[in-house]
């Protein structure tokens, strides 16, 4: 066999769920390991080989001065860098701090806040280094991460849809929860990729894949208002797992204005 491409998986501030998605590819895990050399995946292996790496998957956001430095090192060792998940792509749930006083957060959680080193913001990897591809989701979809690995292995474009969750709902034959139940849902402004699971389970999408490529949040926010959401609830629906993604951040800001 020819030299296998070398894969590395990195963790920044996150819940580990996206790298776990790789280990959740039970049917494909050993096949992937046959096609690539898993050179650095600390959660899965004690054997850590030094870089450079052909493909680095980066999970998590940058929240500490140390991590801001470390991501530069990761980039320098990686031919291709792909972010996996909402933290790495938009700052994640912890980016809610970006809208608050972090000092106050620190005091609220820790009795001795002086021990805690943190930045005032949680930022996406793209804000620090160039990124070759961003895979969305909180967590990512495991079929998509396999597709991305395969695509980078074979230098083709990953087949990852950038349109709305609605398309997945319709393809899946799910009855629209907005139209048929009046349930607030972020599906029309959220990127596909999850398989429209929330509407399929009769709840509204909560936007964990971040904004779709043409998100008309002004129109959607006004419809959410008609469905009975108060500005505070509209603010919360945008400000969850992709709060700092530009389109959702703007929609949240608009809801704050609306709320006065």
């Amino acid at each position: 066999m020819a030299v296998r491409p070398r894969l590395a998986v990195w963790k920044f501030a996150s819940c580990d769920g996206c790298q776990l998605s790789l280990l959740d590819c039970e049917d494909e895990l050993l096949a992937v390991a046959g096609e690539v050399e898993i050179a650095n995946f600390v959660e899965a292996s004690s054997a850590v080989a030094p870089g450079p790496y052909d493909l680095s998957l980066v999970e998590g956001s940058v929240t500490t001065p140390e991590d801001a430095r470390r991501i530069q090192e990761v980039r320098a060792q990686s031919k291709h860098l792909v972010t996996i998940g909402a933290c790495a792509t938009a700052g994640g749930i912890q980016a809610l701090r970006n809208f608050q006083d972090v000092e106050e957060f620190r005091r609220a959680v820790y009795a001795r806040p002086e021990y805690i080193a943190t930045l005032a913001t949680s930022t996406a990897i793209r804000d620090h280094v160039p990124v070759d591809f961003e895979l969305r989701g909180c967590p990512i979809n495991k079929a998509q991460v396999l597709e991305v690995i395969a695509a980078f292995l074979h230098r083709r474009r990953p087949t990852v849809a950038t349109g709305s969750v609605c398309a997945e709902c319709k393809r899946r034959g799910v009855v629209c929860v907005v139209v048929a139940q009046g349930t607030p849902c972020l599906g029309p402004v959220t990127q596909a990729g999850c398989g429209a699971i929330c509407p399929a389970y009769r709840r509204g999408c909560y936007g964990c894949f971040g904004p779709q490529d043409s998100p008309n949040t002004p129109a959607w926010s006004s419809r959410l208002g008609e469905l009975g959401l108060a500005p505070g609830a509209i603010l919360r629906i945008y400000r969850t797992f992709n709060a700092a993604a530009p389109a959702f951040r703007a929609a949240g800001d608009a809801a704050v204005q609306e709320g006065g």
Binding site: T159, C166, Q212
Partner: peptide
């Protein structure tokens, strides 16, 4: 300005045939 570009109309439409191959 009102349209969400969400694709619901086209996929609910009984005649829309546009598709992509992967």
């Amino acid at each position: 300005r009102r349209c969400l570009a969400c694709t619901n109309c086209t996929l609910a439409c009984p005649t829309c045939f546009c598709h992509s191959t992967e």
